[in-house]
Design a protein around this nucleic acid. Structure first.
Lengths: 244, 244
DNA sequence: TCCGGTTTTCGTCATCCTGACCGTAACCGG
DNA sequence: CCGGTTACGGTCAGGATGACGAAAACCGGA
């Protein structure tokens, strides 16, 4: 921290090869949600003409008086129509390779956002939900910048945090059934879980869920009505819900 | 990502309240090591006159052609005398509150570094190892900037990663005994562990350690000579080493 | 009304992991 | 030789896990 009292917005004299300068700082958000039992990622079409046909994570430049969390919330609101209390938001990682943006040095602070499947996915203008299974394939979108490096990190973070935190509850509504919660785990992990064992582990994890009143109506295919639950006070799970 | 093609080092016209500008980007490194069975954090004295009496994490500004990892390595080399292959280095989190640095907007990418206790701790000029137990107390150092927010995050990251990764091996030498590895866990977690159970868990975790040749000499207090081990190929531990 | 299909919920059982504990092996210093 | 210390190995009870079975409670169609 040997920063002198130079002003941050000071211009670099033309032609000088200053070893230390300032960078553009942006925030990119990887928003995940579960729709129809499948994990989805929200992507937007950048308006830069040289990136036509590519898709990108919704991102915004950081403003002078804005914290990084505020920028992430603003990116979600402006580009995806997601308001702050509807989403879980946490910082993921910062990407700052000098060549990651062809237009110049941009340091990007990536965020991970998780939303329940409550709002209509077609409300944003240019945003679209993509199935994460398609992402690597030729059916999937071509990602701009280094976002093909950010997305796997976001997926791994989400998959890992479902194991030892109560983060899966961020994917479901305020009141939910254990079947809905199980389908979240199955969609994020890409596996199928035994319903009986899943129930036992969730109920035995202290503070994960608390029983709510009433029963949920079965789906169109029938089935026994399920008990309703709410999130419990715990954030870390003891014992953990480990992937198979 | 609506960044236009404006140059990143373009000067902001004086007096204009531009909502988007560039930031100074720095890297601060929280280096942890275990010395005499206690977890230590490396701090330096900033040379800024208004911060006399304060201690800070070693940090450097990011240069134009430098990746964030490179900056972290440079900060360790220049401020702590630690060369790259001697330390495990991973990104921790980015701190970007507008008021975190009183001299202006500085976005800091924090790194976590772990080193074995092999090099002499008195070689850097102004760097010093502090016992992490002293950090919150009045015997401890006064931390500059928002480094009192970074340090707890670094400690929690290290404590957590010891559970489900083989990161504890970064604290010991290339060849080590299970007693040395156990003292790492005890120092980082601040607990005392049963030697017999610890041995069983480490050996049964596939790929954590592999047996080396020869026996280690006992300490001055005696004791049976211990077998020597090396790091195994695993990075994730199965099963995990959970905190008591 | 009856029946197959579906989902939820509960119970059983063998297996594995964990913590607590004991005993032995092998070294040190006095 | 003997007490202290550390390393190593085994036992045992309790908890968690996966595989599996079965009952409860709903749906739709025959």
């Amino acid at each position: 921290m040997t920063i002198r009292s130079e002003r941050l917005t000071s211009a670099v004299p033309p032609g000088s090869a200053a070893p230390v300068s300032t960078c553009a700082v942006a925030v990119d958000v990887a928003l995940l949600t579960v729709l129809d039992g499948r994990l989805k990622l929200l992507l937007v079409e950048p308006d830069a003409p040289q990136l036509a046909g590519h898709w990108a994570l919704p991102g915004r430049r950081v403003r002078d008086d804005e914290s990084l969390d505020d920028t992430a919330h603003r990116a979600l609101a402006e580009l995806a129509g997601v308001r702050a209390p509807d989403a879980h938001l946490e910082q993921l990682r910062t990407y700052g390779d000098p060549s990651r943006d062809p237009r110049g040095r941009v340091v990007s602070v990536a965020y991970l956002a998780l939303t329940p499947t409550t709002h209509d996915p077609t409300d944003p203008l240019t945003a679209q939900l993509w199935d994460v299974e398609q992402l690597g394939t030729q059916d999937g979108p071509r990602l701009a910048y280094d976002h093909d490096r950010i997305v796997p990190d976001a997926l791994e973070r989400a998959r890992s945090k479902l194991e030892y935190t109560s983060l899966a509850a961020a994917f479901v509504a305020d009141v939910f059934t254990l079947g809905e919660l199980r389908r979240v785990y199955e969609a994020v992990w890409g596996v199928s879980l035994d319903p009986a064992n899943f129930r036992r582990k969730v109920v035995s994890a202290r503070g994960f869920v608390t029983e709510a009143e009433g029963l949920a109506s079965p789906g169109p295919g029938g089935g026994r009505p399920a008990k309703r639950y709410r999130r419990g006070p715990a954030t870390r799970l003891h014992p953990a819900m480990l992937r198979p």
